[in-house]
Design a protein around this nucleic acid. Structure first.
Lengths: 336, 336
DNA sequence: CTGAAAGCGCTAACAA
DNA sequence: TTGTTAGCGCTTTCAG
């Protein structure tokens, strides 16, 4: 641990500047000198102290990623992509979990721990529009999720409304008329749940189908257990429907499970459609038709956008970047 | 960003040492001084530069977690736990993905990026016994997975052999005699696959059942798709069996999917049992009987062990810590 | 092409 | 109780 530039310089019989030059591939070094230095480095097993380098350069070579919880499959897959992408750019990722909790999200934005990184990719779920001011931070940041805040921040997000509308239209095209929803958030106006529900309503309207709140299942955290519970409540209330739109895959899988327990056949009695395009949606019984909202593109774009900000174009106007979506047709809602 | 101790000291009319004392809760400060300093800090919006502090103190307040891939559910849930646990201790987590690739695992151990952290929780999958020397690193490290290396390193792991044996015995107790396996690794001697297979064989031996390689499905990466593919190969080869032991849940779920496609009823025709105790195993159709290897305990223990090493007991003898397992009885292999 | 020296922002002896 | 000062290990002018 304790081997420094000075040790290497001493052994190689040069100054620390020369060693530094070698390490940083400074071009004009005499080959003989370079060799001496490299031999010394190898002999001593020297590795540069990144903390010192960071202090000097003002950069850390790390970015932070803040998501609600890695045990939510969507965020796990997102994080996997972000880390892969960052690594390709030689940057390391520090992962924070907020639990989708407003207080913790706000704390995170003020946390000195972020000083350990050059920037933040942030997926806020708990904060509301009132908290927009908290997003006016003095470090590079890219927001994931809806552009619900007007601050000067880059957003990378998906077409929630359009994608949900397309999904609903897809079900309607199969002749489904009573389409239940699982995962709605009571009274929410912004956020993914509200936007996807809006897309759902637009599709109903366009098809002349009345919106019926009695087949909307409300549940906050998009866990599988909540999808199951929500569906049980719908069934217990005697709701009638011929399709279910899960506002994400995990909910849809939980709901599908309960439907089958109750004796409904999927898709014959009830078609099921999810949202997220998770790997596991391909291997459920039946496999889940779902909307791929472009998660991979989002991860890639978030990283490259953040790195560009860090690299300097801090004054470029903030951008909103939208991923393309597509419907992955599977068995739970086949294309008729 | 550019506000430093000196700025605060200047505004408060004291020396930087006094400011430093206030920040670090040094006890003997006159209340009036403290107030002045705190006012200045608030006015300037000062936050300490952690990089500088780290350089000085030799600590970073961060640990690294290296896993194969966060899109593997087991590691996502493990990472979620590790981050939660670390946060409770005021430590931040940098996540690295190795892809279970030997070369990248070896590179990681030598990577200067680790200098950004105080220690490493490492789950190696690609490295073999020949690489044990590479694990003799000069920073605190806790290994997850088998104690297959003899280096002076702490291990936190699960009882793979016992748990797999118990799982197999559980199936045998239900009257199953032809128990297929999905996820074996050809020629592997150490590592989770080999150990779980060993537990399986021990159970067969104890019950006087002959081991039959024709019902062992080999596949490397424990992805759902591989579980499915492996099961398809077994079926195509005309293998006969009345139970399947998936060496992890993801494999088991993929295999179960294919079994049902092929018209087999689970558990009537074929019982299915997994390994990992994933959340999603509870919501498959049918729900998956599985072994919970103590993942949560492993995450907690890995963090606390690493932090203890970092805090100083570097010379304590290396320990191997074993989690308790339990079988979660569900529908895919009911307790008769 | 290489060396000397300053300083990034902070902590911790040591003084006062 | 508070101030002075010397580094932590590195990069980076500026000389030579």
């Amino acid at each position: 641990m304790a081997v420094t530039l000075h040790d290497v310089a001493g052994l190689a019989g040069v100054s620390i500047k020369t060693v530094s030059n070698v390490i940083n591939d400074y071009p004009h070094i005499r080959p003989a000198t370079r060799e001496k230095v490299e031999a010394a480095i190898a002999q001593l097993g020297y590795t540069p102290n990144l903390t010192a380098r960071n202090l000097r350069s003002g950069r850390t070579g790390a970015i932070a990623l803040a998501v609600p919880d890695l045990s939510l499959a969507y965020f796990a897959e997102l994080a996997a992509e972000v880390i892969r992408e960052a690594e390709a750019a030689g940057v390391v990722v520090l992962v924070e979990q907020t639990g989708a909790d407003r207080t913790r999200e706000l704390e995170l934005l003020r946390s000195p721990r972020l000083k350990l990184t050059d920037g933040l990719i942030f997926s806020p779920l708990g904060m509301g529009q009132d908290d927009a001011a908290a997003l006016d931070v003095n470090f590079p940041m890219v927001l994931l999720g809806e552009r619900i805040f007007d601050g000067p921040t880059d957003h990378v997000t998906m077409r929630n409304v359009e994608a949900a509308r397309a999904a609903t239209e897809y079900l309607i095209a199969q002749g489904r008329r009573r389409i239940a929803v699982v995962g709605a958030h009571e009274g929410e106006l912004i956020g993914s749940a509200a936007l996807r529900l809006q897309g759902y309503r637009e599709a109903l309207d366009a098809a002349g189908i009345a919106y019926d709140d009695s087949i909307i299942g409300y549940t906050t955290l998009w866990h599988r257990a909540n999808g199951a519970r929500s569906m049980r409540e719908l069934l217990a209330a005697g709701a009638e429907f011929d399709a279910v739109f899960g506002l994400n895959d995990t909910l849809a899988l939980g709901a599908m499970r309960v439907l089958q327990e109750s004796g409904r056949r999927v898709p014959d009695d009830v078609a099921v459609l999810g949202f997220d395009g998770l790997d596991e949606a391909e291997y459920s019984i039946p496999s889940l038709t779902t909307v791929d909202p472009g998660r991979e593109w989002i991860a890639r774009t978030a990283v490259s956008t953040l790195l560009a900000r860090i690299a300097g174009d801090a004054d470029a106007p903030p951008r909103t970047l939208l991923a393309d979506y597509r419907i992955l047709q599977r068995e739970s809602a086949p294309a008729s």
